[in-house]
């Protein structure tokens, strides 16, 4: 835990920069508002103020600085405003309400998990096939690797519409996007893992005259576990991004992506920020769960990473 203090320092530094940035970012809005409320503002007309930078205006109107933290619709909300919005929409609302971020989170998360399960299962099966069949290896593997260099996320809007034409809506189209985004990293990682035993270890099994299925269950599969978890962690974050992006261009009414869009379109930045942070927390939690599972599994297997 000797990294705890450095980590906290970095996080604190980021928060301090954020808090300081709120003042110049919001000063123009604050000044306009203050003027409407009848306060003295320098310079006096909005047109003149446009000529000033946020920082310059802040120095000219130091008295208004506290007000930059309390705007209803700030350009940059302060940390406490985002935290407040999240508290209100996560803890204080009924989880089935459309106002609740838990509800929206579940809509996105369920699609993510279903898609991830499909994607990883297919990915593992394909990887096993690739390792055991040379034709499959040579045909498919180059495409799987190439897919990692291509923004296949761009397919998302089309998949939603295509499946919509067949009357499939809701969770499934998003899950399909999550599935193919998690599929390729798992294929590539799993193939690497199944191939990770070195020549000496393979030769040992050959001296036992072990069959290829024995080799798979006793050597290749256990050896692939660390690689598999590494792919899981990449796959689950990709799946979540996929589900969120799938909600964007199609006017979905629920989910993190929908909340971001709503906040954007109705000029309520707090909604966007709260959804963004909730999505970040969800992603972090998913990765943390897989990290914990990885530790536990590897320790059980006696392969504990130091």
């Amino acid at each position: 835990m000797k990294s705890l203090f450095p980590i906290l320092t970095i996080v604190a530094a980021i928060l301090v920069i954020w808090v300081l940035a709120v003042v110049p970012m919001n000063m123009h809005l604050t000044a306009d508002q203050a003027q409407r409320d009848g306060l003295m503002v320098m310079p006096q007309t909005p047109a003149e103020r446009q000529g000033y930078s946020g920082l310059g205006l802040s120095f000219a109107n130091a008295g208004l600085i506290p007000l930059t933290y309390t705007l209803d619709r700030p350009r940059l909300p302060s940390p406490h405003q985002v935290a407040g919005e999240m508290w209100e929409t996560i803890a204080l609302r009924n989880v089935t309400s459309r106002q609740s971020l838990v509800y929206h989170g579940w809509v996105t998360l369920s699609a993510t998990l279903v898609g991830f399960a499909i994607g990883t299962t297919l990915g593992i099966l394909l990887a096993v096939g690739i390792v055991h069949n040379r034709a499959m290896d040579m045909s498919v593997m180059p495409w799987a690797i190439a897919s990692q260099t291509i923004p296949i996320l761009a397919l998302a809007p089309m998949i939603i519409v295509m499946m919509g034409q067949f009357g499939i809506q809701g969770l499934l189209p998003k899950a399909v996007i999550s599935a193919y985004l998690s599929f390729f990293p798992v294929v590539v990682g799993m193939v690497k893992g199944l191939r990770s035993p070195d020549a000496m270890q393979m030769d040992l099994l050959r001296t036992y005259y072990a069959s290829s299925s024995q080799g798979f269950w006793k050597l290749r599969l256990p050896a692939s576990v660390p690689y598999l978890f590494a792919s899981f962690k990449i796959g689950i974050s990709a799946a979540l991004v996929g589900a969120i992006v799938a909600e964007l261009p199609t006017g979905a009414r629920a989910g993190f992506g929908a909340r971001m869009l709503v906040g954007d379109q109705y000029g309520n930045p707090l909604v966007t920020w709260a959804a963004l942070f909730a999505a970040a927390i969800t992603a972090a939690a998913l990765v943390a769960i897989f990290t914990a599972m990885e530790r536990l599994t590897l320790r059980r297997m006696g392969m504990a990473a130091a």
């Binding site: 990294s3 970095i10 972090a284 990765v287």
Partner: peptide
Amino acid sequence: FLTRGILPVGGFMAALPIVG
């Protein structure tokens, strides 16, 4: 001190849906 803080924080940020 800083590198020990930056590595985990940066790794964490890299896993987040920043497109948002």
